[in-house]
Design a protein around this nucleic acid. Sequence first.
DNA 1: TCTCCAACCGACACCTGTGTCGGTGGTTGG
DNA 2: CCAACCACCGACACAGGTGTCGGTTGGAGA
Lengths: 206, 206
Amino acid sequence: MSTSEAVRRRLSAPARRERIEAAAVEVFAARGYDAASVGDIARAAGVSRTVLYDHFRSKRDLYLHVLDTQNAAMLAEVGAGITGAGAGRDRMRATVAAYLSFARQRPSARRILVDPIPTGDPELDRALRTFRTARTQAVATMLGSDLARSGLPHGSTAAEVVVELLITGVDGVARWWQEHPVATLDEVTDVAARLLWNGLPRLATP
Amino acid sequence: MSTSEAVRRRLSAPARRERIEAAAVEVFAARGYDAASVGDIARAAGVSRTVLYDHFRSKRDLYLHVLDTQNAAMLAEVGAGITGAGAGRDRMRATVAAYLSFARQRPSARRILVDPIPTGDPELDRALRTFRTARTQAVATMLGSDLARSGLPHGSTAAEVVVELLITGVDGVARWWQEHPVATLDEVTDVAARLLWNGLPRLATP
DNA sequence: TCTCCAACCGACACCTGTGTCGGTGGTTGG
DNA sequence: CCAACCACCGACACAGGTGTCGGTTGGAGA
């Protein structure tokens, strides 16, 4: 232990790379892709600007890499929170809780992945769209039986509208929660899940 | 009538200003504030770049003006579509229909006003936040009686969560509709309103 | 301890965008 | 018809961003 981690100035390439990615997540989330400069990210990573180019081909390359990593993290974390079994109602509640929990712990990741950021770059927009449709698909299959029971066949307009409203609505709640952190996960989850399952007039019924 | 409108090259100041604002709405919506350049907007308005500075102090000034105008238009159009009277359920349906209709007719306005665009500029972000809370307030008062009947007092956490989920969820549907224009306003409105009023398992019941 | 790889950086070239200024010519009221 | 106003523009100065290159030095393996 001749060189403690705190004193070490020169990191190994993977470690530095990881720090750059972490910094990039924050800066991209805070300012958006276009407004975030490589200089900002490098400074946040505690390194000179050119070091970034030793690890990533370009700013766009870094961004795509960040998207990939964060999307995988989100799928893993949210997916793990969903118990496949149980009544539809409990499954819904578990999913909402998992997403809200993830969004609370990694607000920057949520923002980068979910908030619609127009970049004008075809490749970047395509990547974001791909992630989004994957999420939609996942939710659609999760709710498949419940939707079918309500007479909404898979792929129908009505089913797609329902799924879209669920996803964006819950994400909106996540955004609200981020700005009002006093509320507890339980109460927020409860209200959201009950609204979606019972409807507005029956919110009080469990 | 020596100079017809089609041949006229030199517009009056207000007319030119209006065209610049219209072009700015499109460009800002397509690329976001930071990535949209004054040159892009000027070209879209069919005019040289410097003309823009004869009408607006700066790019930021133009943006704030655009936000103001579009927000007013949205409030007017959506507000007009809401019938104050009627059962809570019908009021909800009318509001959803009004918003979806607006979003369909003016997709760029919807995008600029509602999609969360991080600019990093305090004044701009503050303006957007102001518009957003105003919208939230409007929806909250509209649903006030229904929320109270469900035991959610005005201003409570639960009430705010419900309102947030409604707004963002319906906006998500608007976004979906924009990318799937085949669906009719009636069916989309119907599904969204029924989901929010009846809950997922009772979607089929009218 | 010595050596050598690679993590790191300063300086440079280039591009794109914003905002300014002086001038030019279409348009219109007299 | 003509003179003055003002809508319009080209060219400029400047700021800030991206990506490159050659050199420097920490630190791990011998």
